[in-house]
């Protein structure tokens, strides 16, 4: 049996292959969509601003995902969590999947895995546990999109309202979640205060865009609100925790 190490060169090579694949796929769709955008008459400046604001918006959540890699690395080494959180994964799924399998094998999550079979079992569970969604995309997306298109084509006004309703349904679920901890007392209100700060910054951006005509802010209002509220959460937590 080859000597096993959770940080082996082999695992880094496997991870690198997958990471390059993800980059290639993203680049392919970026170029394809940008070309189509030009054909549709969308201004080059709009495309550039979309790219810049999406990149800025992504940095903070991406750093949070990196923290997830660090969390899992204490148990599984660096390359495999890096792979899992770069493709399909999210820490909210990967950690329970690792915990569930480790518990079945009587392993502690406090120590790094030294057994290749145990590592393999966790790798299988993490992979198989998340795969059905992507199969549905592969075989069912055309049908799902066809359904959406028929709603839109039948009645365009209702099509737009239908889509706004879906967005608001999602936003409502996450806004409601902010109230889950208020029974804990003052610290339970921290997420609500942070959300209110974010909304207030967004409101200020809205005023600057509409009243002061600072048009470039349109693309950056959400990243600014998010980063501002995250920064504010530090003193807020200090005061309320």
């Amino acid at each position: 049996m080859t000597d096993f190490n959770v940080n082996s060169g082999f695992l880094y090579i496997v991870t690198a292959v997958i990471v390059v694949f993800v980059l290639a796929q993203s680049l392919f769709f970026l170029v394809k969509a940008a070309r189509r955008a030009r054909e549709l008459g969308i201004a080059g400046a709009t495309i550039r601003k979309t790219i810049a604001s999406s990149a800025l918006f992504t940095i903070a959540p991406a750093v949070a995902i990196l923290l997830g890699v660090i969390t899992l690395s204490k148990f599984m080494g660096l390359p495999f969590p890096w792979l899992r959180l770069s493709v399909l994964g999210a820490l909210t799924y990967e950690l329970p999947a690792a915990t569930s399998t480790a518990t079945a094998m009587n392993l502690s999550l406090a120590q790094q895995i030294t057994d290749a079979k145990a590592f393999g079992a966790i790798a299988w569970v993490m992979t198989l546990g998340i795969i059905p969604g992507i199969f549905l995309v592969l075989f069912g997306l055309k049908k799902i999109q066809g359904g959406v298109m028929s709603i839109k084509n039948k009645d365009p006004k209702w099509g737009n309202i239908f889509m706004d309703s879906m967005f608001l349904g999602m936003i409502s679920a996450f806004m409601g979640m902010l109230f889950a901890d208020i029974r804990l007392g003052v610290p339970g209100f921290i997420p609500i205060v942070v959300a209110v700060i974010s909304a207030a910054i967004m409101g200020i951006c809205g005023v600057l865009i509409k009243v002061c005509k600072i048009k470039w802010l349109e693309q950056y209002a959400l990243p600014i609100s998010m980063l501002g509220a995250m920064a504010a959460s530090i003193p807020v937590t200090w005061l309320m925790a």
């Binding site: 806004m175 909304a199 967004m202 509220a229 995250m230 807020v236």
Partner: peptide, 15 residues
């Protein structure tokens, strides 16, 4: 706290 509050910071502005 900043990383613990990403979701409220995100959905406050978006919401």
């Amino acid at each position: 706290p900043a990383f613990e509050n990403i979701m409220p910071a995100l959905f406050g502005g978006l919401g």
